[in-house]
Every structure is written in C-alpha cells, then in structure tokens.
C-alpha cells in the first residue's frame, strides 16, 4: 500500500485497522506482562534471599507504580527477628527506587 495511501483523501480501513491493532496489542502486552514479570521477580528475589535468611513468600512485596514518565519499582522485604545473617541492620527493611 505504501505512502500513497497516507496522502489519500480517505484513509483505507485496513490502515486504520493496523494502527488500532498496533496500539491495542502494545497495551495488551503491557497489562499482560506486568503481573507475571512482577511475580517472577518476587519469586527470584525470594530464592536469593532464602539462601541467607529464612523468610516466607509473603515477606517479599514487589509493586510497580507509574508516575507520569517514570516507573517506580518498590521492593519491601521484611526480615524475621531471629536468624538474621545480614551484617547491615539498615538493610532489614529496604525501599529501593529505580
């Protein structure tokens, strides 16, 4: 179809379809990927932390916030009172901003 169609007075429906579809699918992907990516991240973090400290699944909370142009990934890791192995007490409850 090429450029000609873009300059054509009435745009062809196939082009409209493609444009709508591209946006739609990009949005679908975003929504679809968000939860699985976060839960995968949560699980992997959990695995890593578990190597050093005995924690539960629910002790690692991962969430993603969007503010205008930037996305904020929030990690909240609650470590139990006993069985601590970390040397730095400040890292017990961490908030990291990316």
């Amino acid at each position: 179809m090429g450029l000609f169609d873009y300059f054509h007075a009435n745009r062809k429906s196939a082009n409209v379809a493609k444009e709508r579809l591209s946006i739609l699918i990009a949005r679908d992907h975003f929504h679809r990927n968000q939860p699985s990516f976060l839960s995968a991240l949560q699980n992997e973090l959990l695995e890593v932390i578990k190597k050093y400290v005995d924690i539960d699944h629910d002790d690692v909370v991962v969430s993603l916030d969007r503010e205008e142009d930037c996305e904020i990934l929030e990690l909240n890791i609650a470590l139990p009172e006993k069985g601590r192995y970390t040397s730095d007490p400040d890292s017990l409850d961490q908030k990291n901003k990316i």
Partner: peptide, 12 residues
C-alpha cells in the same frame, strides 16, 4: 485497502 495484509499481520 480493505483488509490487513500479510505484512501488516506478520509485523504485529
């Protein structure tokens, strides 16, 4: 121009 082309669909 009434139907999505092979290229369009493959691209998506």
């Amino acid at each position: 121009g009434e139907m999505l082309s092979i290229e369009d669909i493959q691209e998506i």
